[in-house]
Amino acid sequence: MNNQIFGEEELKRMFTHDARGIEPNAAVRERLEYAYLLKSRNYKTTQNSFLGVFTWLFSWSHLPAKVAVVSLFLMISVINFQPKNQQLIMPGSDTTLNNVPLRIDTSGMFPLFADSCLNVKS
């Protein structure tokens, strides 16, 4: 070893080499896992909830992104609009059946002896 200062790479190599075989006792892990188990009994169990998602959804945060997504959705919906055949039938009156609208059926409207067949004086 000369009077030169140790190089960075040399020191890194030495530390890596030195760390080999220096390992903690396995019992430490067991003790810690047991301690964690005891501690975790006191932790609250949190249920899965959609609250967070809905809070984000209806908040003002990331508004441009939300608007962009909704616009895209609407645009795709409009482009993909394909009406079915039934939707082409236009509502209208069938004139073959209804030639004279609002026609008064006078056959049944002969009150007060209007029916001349029954009102035969002769």
Binding site: A19, V28, R29, L32, E33, S40
Partner: peptide, 13 residues
Amino acid sequence: RLAFSELYERYNR
């Protein structure tokens, strides 16, 4: 518990 194990595994040595 798995998170604890992973943390320990990552840092113990």
